[in-house]
């Protein structure tokens, strides 16, 4: 049944082709304040919630480091981990939780992870909050259609913890495989509410509204980033990690509402 995953493969193929299109120009010395020069091309696997921030950072990184090119692949962290285990060519990996990253550390496939950013959870609802959802407890209402990420996805795991903290039992309508798809269900109007990262709500401003989860019930997700050991461009990969922790990428993250590490 090869058709089963054709759609996904097609998307991946498009991503790869796009990456090839912007293939590396001859590297030139970095003309930025960055300590280590970024050069050549990198394939970066990143948690879906990082989509906007990383995409924002790319042009600035390229402007600062002529000849540098990054190809991003965004998906649920658990999917990225599976990809790396299966030998996907990648240089850097950034996940949304420690659990998923830990698998690769144990397997010896990545270098030591560094926490580079943090995030909080929020309830995403339709603009202007027509269903009047104000607390986690509202998600248990039978007239509210809730969608969460699957428990194996960091966002799904966190959502589960958050609901447990608030002592709320929710029967979701669907368990999606990455956080952006979860958010899409609220954007499309098919779901009334979802638990996603605060940064996802901000990125979809106008399409969804955020309902803040009080600190007492909330969880702070810490994002680790690591160099994939199989990389062919270790120097640039390490430089990318540095940019994420304290450089241009970090700036982009803060702008998008992520918390400093």
């Amino acid at each position: 049944m090869p058709r089963r995953s054709r759609g996904l493969l097609a998307f991946l193929a498009v991503g790869l082709l796009a990456g090839c299109g912007s293939s590396a120009a001859p590297s030139t010395p970095a003309a930025t304040a960055t300590a280590v020069p970024l050069s050549g091309s990198l394939t970066v696997l990143a948690a879906a919630s990082l989509t906007e921030a990383f995409n924002d950072a790319e042009p600035t990184l390229q402007a600062a480091n002529p000849g540098f090119a990054a190809t991003f692949s965004f998906a649920g962290s658990q999917q990225l981990v599976t990809n790396v285990i299966n030998g996907a060519p990648a240089d850097v990996l950034a996940t949304a939780d420690q659990t998923t990253m830990e698998k690769l550390v144990t397997a010896g496939l990545v270098g030591t992870p560094v926490t580079f950013t943090r995030n909080r959870l929020e309830i995403a609802v339709a603009p202007a909050n027509p269903r009047g959802i104000h607390t986690l407890a509202d998600l248990a209402r039978s007239d509210i259609a809730v969608v969460l990420a699957a428990p194996a996805v960091p966002a799904g795991n966190f959502a589960k913890q958050v609901l447990a903290k608030a002592n709320v039992t929710v029967t979701p309508k669907s368990l999606e495989l990455d956080v952006k798809t979860v958010l899409e269900k609220v954007e499309s109007g098919d779901a009334d509410a979802a638990i996603v990262y605060a940064t996802d709500v901000a990125a979809a401003a106008g399409l969804v509204t955020g309902v803040v989860i009080p600190d007492a019930q909330n969880i702070v997700a810490t994002y680790p980033i690591a160099v994939v050991k199989a990389t062919l461009n270790a120097a640039a990969a390490a430089a990318f990690v540095t940019e994420a922790v304290s450089g241009l990428i970090q700036k982009a993250l803060l702008k998008r509402g992520f918390l400093p590490p």
Partner: peptide
């Protein structure tokens, strides 16, 4: 064997759409 249209349209939940 259907996968793509199902997960996109109907989502994925054990017992209902998974």
């Amino acid at each position: 064997g259907e996968f793509g249209a199902t997960i996109t349209f109907a989502g994925s939940f054990p017992g209902t759409t998974e």
